[in-house]
């Protein structure tokens, strides 16, 4: 596997992504990007029109700019640091692992792939996340989020592990939610959750999902030395929509 290392110091967003694209089309399968500082849309351009679907690994040190992995189709990104807004926006497939925190609108309208965030995330996380047939996005967050988690959510799985110091004090969780599921480890008051959402305890099938994706989360961050049994022992709640048609009876 050919690896290319790029020092991103002083390189513009457009130039950096153009180099990644050219190298990917030339067969590079692994990139190591050093000193990334605000360059946006990393991974977005990496699509080949000739029908083959190249899959590359991108290892990033520094702080990538907004829309990391937006519209991304199938690449794997690891960030040693924090990320900004719009990570995984409308992402179709692939994997993003962030050793740090994420900004707002994380995973918005994401339809496939996985995102693992070590720490906390901002507002509107997993907004209008979707799913389609075998495409079922998974988002696992080590800490917690700000308000409007899972707003308009239509599919996929979101897991909040609450491993950090912050409590889950976000509000408007799942407003307009009509698909998918959110699992939260720890306490959430009913008043924090929108009326369209049903709050319950995870069942056997839910526990299987939790076991699988918490396991993957732990594997993604081996340095943390997390104990799966310890985490899964905690109290989880499950949030799911009461109806697939929240607005069916609005019209005359």
């Amino acid at each position: 596997m050919e690896t290319v290392e790029i020092d991103a110091t002083g390189i513009s967003t457009e130039d950096l992504n153009e180099r990644l694209m050219a190298l990917m089309l030339d067969g590079t399968e692994k990139f190591v990007l050093k000193n990334v500082c605000g360059q946006r849309y990393i991974g977005t351009r990496l699509y080949s029109k000739n029908g083959n679907k190249p899959r590359v690994d991108i290892d990033i040190t520094g702080t990538p700019g907004s829309d990391l992995g937006a519209f991304m189709s199938g690449h794997r990104v690891r960030v040693h640091g924090n990320v900004q807004d719009g990570v995984g926006n409308t992402m179709d497939d692939g994997e993003i692992v962030v050793e740090g925190r994420a900004g707002d609108v994380l995973g918005m309208s994401m339809r496939g792939g996985k995102i693992f965030i070590r720490d906390n995330t901002g507002y509107r996380t997993a907004l209008h996340m979707k799913e389609y047939l075998d495409k079922k996005p998974v988002l696992v967050i080590g800490g917690t989020t700000q308000d409007f988690l899972g707003e308009y959510m239509a599919g996929g799985i979101v897991i909040l592990l609450g491993l950090g110091e912050l409590p889950h004090n976000q509000t408007f969780i799942g407003t307009g939610m009509h698909g998918g599921v959110i699992y939260i480890r720890g306490k959430v008051d009913k008043l924090q959750v929108a009326g369209q959402v049903d709050i319950s305890e995870p069942g056997v099938e839910d526990r299987k999902l939790l076991d699988k994706f918490v396991g993957e989360f732990i594997e993604s961050f081996p340095d943390l030395g997390l104990n799966k049994e310890e985490i899964l022992k905690g109290d989880f709640i499950k949030l799911a929509p009461k109806s697939k048609r929240p607005y069916a009876k609005m019209y005359a």
């Binding site: 807004d85 719009g86 926006n89 609108v105 918005m108 339809r111 509107r124 907004l127 209008h128 979707k130 799913e131 389609y132 495409k135 707003e151 308009y152 239509a154 599919g155 307009g176 009509h178 698909g179 697939k244 048609r245 929240p246 607005y247 069916a248």
Partner: peptide, 21 residues
């Protein structure tokens, strides 16, 4: 329609008032 929009058959396709990004 579900295949083209990539959503499950029979669910409401909701377009929020603003783009939330």
């Amino acid at each position: 329609v579900a295949e083209t929009r990539m959503i499950p058959v029979g669910t409401d396709a909701i377009s929020p008032a603003p783009h939330h990004d």
